[in-house]
C-alpha cells in the first residue's frame, strides 16, 4: 500500500484529528489496519500489534464529540449524502484510496428495509490493504497449468481473505484470463468514482454495489468472463448464482467465513457448491505473526453421499 493512498484519508479529516493522524501516518502508515472513531470515546488506531489510543499534543486521548463525527461523516460523503445513499444503507462508504468507512448509528427503516442512517456515532476507517504477492502461495492451487480451478477460500474475519482474493484476481487477469469481479461492498477493487483503486489486473471487469447474485448473472451475460471472483458467499441466492456460473463453464473463485474445514463444508450455503463437483478444493487461510499461510483441502463429492 503506497503512502499516498493512506494519506488520502487526511483530506477528509480536519482539526486535531487531522494533525495527529498525519503524524501517525508519517511514522507508521504501512502497519495501520483500522481507525475507530466513536462518539465521546477515545479514537483508536488498530495495528498488527494491537489497539492504541490516538493522543493529542498533550498526550491526552483524542475524544470526538457527536457534532465532530457528523461533520467528519459529511466530509467522507463529500457533503453529498444522496450520492452515497446506497452505500450508507449498506453500512459503509468507500473513499478515495479505496479505504472503506464502516458506520454505526440509528437505522431508519421502512417495511424492514434500511432507508438511511442517522445519528451516526461510530466510524471505522478500514485501511485498504493491497498486498501484491499475497496470493503467491495460493496460485499453485488455483492455476493448474493453463487452467483455472474453481476454488473456495475460507478463514475467520480479519485474516486476509479479500486481500488474497484481490491478488488472485490480479495475477490470473495479468496471466490473460478475462476476470469478472462482483464487488458489492467495494472491498476487492476499491472502486472510487468508477476507477479501481487497487490493482486488479488488465483483463478485469467490475460490477460494484450490486447484489452478488445479480452481478454474477450480469457478468456472465454481458462480459463473457473466464473467471468470476466473488467475496463472502453467504446466502442461498449467491450459492445458486455461483452454481449457474459454473454450470455455464465459468470458473468461480470465492471466499467464505469459517474457522475449520468441517464447519465450512457443513454450512447449507456451501454444501451445494461442493456437491456440484466443481469445487474440488478449499483453501484455508491462516495468519501467524502477520504472515499468511495456505492449507489446501481436497474435497470429493462422495463425502456427502452417506
Amino acid at each position: 500500500m503506497s503512502k499516498e493512498r493512506v494519506l488520502e484519508i487526511l483530506s477528509y479529516t480536519y482539526g486535531r484529528l487531522k494533525e495527529q493522524l498525519s503524524e501517525v501516518f508519517e511514522n507508521n502508515y504501512n502497519d495501520i489496519e483500522e481507525i475507530r472513531i466513536r462518539s465521546k470515546r477515545p479514537v483508536i488506531i488498530k495495528t498488527s500489534s494491537g489497539n492504541t489510543e490516538l493522543l493529542d499534543k498533550d498526550l491526552k486521548p483524542i475524544v470526538m464529540s457527536q457534532s465532530e463525527i457528523d461533520k467528519l461523516f459529511d466530509n467522507i460523503c463529500e457533503n453529498s449524502r444522496y450520492a452515497y445513499m446506497n452505500e450508507i444503507c449498506n453500512g459503509y462508504v468507500t473513499i478515495n484510496g479505496g479505504h472503506r468507512v464502516g458506520i454505526a448509528g440509528r437505522a431508519v427503516c421502512e417495511n424492514g428495509v434500511i432507508h438511511n442512517f442517522t445519528d451516526i456515532n461510530s466510524l471505522n476507517i478500514r485501511i485498504a490493504s493491497e498486498r501484491k504477492g499475497a496470493s503467491d502461495a495460493a496460485m499453485k492451487y488455483v492455476l493448474d497449468g493453463n487452467e483455472i480451478k474453481s476454488t473456495l477460500i475460507f478463514a475467520p474475519p480479519m485474516v486476509g481473505k479479500t486481500t488474497v482474493l484481490r491478488d488472485i484476481a490480479r495475477q490470473i487477469s495479468d496471466f490473460g484470463f478475462k476476470v469478472g469481479i462482483t464487488d458489492d461492498r467495494g472491498e476487492i477493487a476499491g472502486m472510487y468514482r468508477g476507477s479501481p483503486q487497487n490493482d486488479i489486473g488488465r483483463f478485469t471487469d467490475v460490477i460494484e454495489n450490486a447484489p452478488k447474485s445479480e452481478a454474477i448473472i450480469m457478468l456472465i451475460r454481458c462480459m463473457s468472463p473466464d473467471v468470476i471472483v466473488t467475496d463472502e458467499i453467504s446466502t442461498m441466492k449467491e450459492c445458486e448464482a455461483v452454481l449457474s456460473a459454473v454450470g455455464t463453464g465459468v470458473k468461480v473463485i470465492g471466499t467464505t467465513h469459517g474457522s475449520n474445514i468441517r464447519e465450512v463444508t457443513e454450512r447449507p450455503v456451501i454444501k451445494p457448491l461442493i456437491k456440484s463437483g466443481e469445487f474440488s478444493q478449499l483453501l484455508e487461510l491462516k495468519r501467524c505473526k502477520n504472515e499468511l499461510s495456505i492449507i489446501p483441502h481436497s474435497i470429493s463429492v462422495s463425502m456427502f453421499d452417506c
Binding site: D74, C77, N79, S80, R81, Y82, M85, H115, N116
Partner: peptide
C-alpha cells in the same frame, strides 16, 4: 447535500 435524493 444533507439528505437523500428525494429531499434534494
Amino acid at each position: 447535500g444533507k439528505g437523500d435524493k428525494e429531499s434534494e
